[in-house]
């Protein structure tokens, strides 16, 4: 595959080395001459092109039109966004974007509903791991937006069922669901499986509910699962 990487920092450098070892063709666009030289030295061959990857002429010269994958991994979300916008315009390549502010994921998700941008946020990954460790013992249903669609009116969200939740051990049909929300799946660690629920499905503490919500019903849905304040230790 031909992989075009914009951003030759630490992530870009080690990514390039790994990809070259897997025999992929790689070109790295890096703004600073010094960083580009360091990367060429690390790989022991010329893979870099010095220039601003958010500039259409630079991206074209780097071969965006024939790229199979374009990776935007600079440290600035706005630069990564423009790289994706330009790539979508000039190529059929799959886009992978690094996002530093997890909130910015939603705007990348909105760019191409047909061939979505793959968004990677290390902040979010660390946060998810922390949440999994911490929320098992917490009383608030952790809410996470997984995907936005329908021009941003609809979102796919994930909620945990915390200890002491009034929803625990209840069947779905016994819950009072807020308007504009529907539960589409339940992730369950113990069974290592995803349950497509029916009204009879019983919820357990630690379940992660995947739901589609419209126009900000997420917080109301979250309230259904939160443990009442009085029950908290």
């Amino acid at each position: 595959m031909f992989i075009l990487i914009v951003g030759g920092g630490k992530v870009g450098s080690y990514l390039t080395r790994a990809l070259i070892q897997q025999n992929h063709e790689v070109v790295v666009v890096e703004k600073y001459d010094k960083k580009a030289k360091a990367l060429d030295a690390l790989i022991d061959r010329q893979v870099t092109m010095v220039g601003d990857g958010a500039d259409p002429t630079v991206l074209e010269a780097a071969g965006v039109a024939r790229a199979d994958v374009v990776v935007a991994d600079t440290g600035d979300d706005e630069d990564n966004l423009v790289v994706v916008l330009l790539t979508k315009k000039k190529s059929k390549a799959r886009c992978i974007a690094r996002v530093n502010n997890p909130r910015n994921r939603l705007i990348f998700d909105s760019l191409d509903p047909v061939d979505p941008v793959i968004v990677i946020s290390s902040t979010e990954i660390i946060l998810d791991v922390l949440n999994e460790q911490v929320n098992a013992a917490s009383y608030t249903a952790a809410l996470e937006t997984m995907h936005l669609f329908g021009r941003g009116n609809l979102s796919l969200v994930r909620l945990s069922v915390p200890a002491g939740s009034p929803a625990a051990d209840k069947s779905l049909c016994d819950l009072t669901m807020p308007r504009n929300s529907v539960i589409v799946a339940i992730e369950r660690d113990n069974d290592d499986s995803i349950v497509i629920p029916t009204g009879d499905t019983q919820l357990r503490v630690g379940d992660r509910i995947v739901a589609v919500v419209k126009n900000g019903a997420a917080e109301k849905l979250q309230a259904v699962f939160n443990a009442p304040a009085g029950s908290r230790a």
Partner: peptide, 10 residues
């Protein structure tokens, strides 16, 4: 910053 402007606008 041009890139920041388009991102904010989006």
């Amino acid at each position: 910053g041009d890139n920041r402007n388009i991102m904010a606008a989006l």
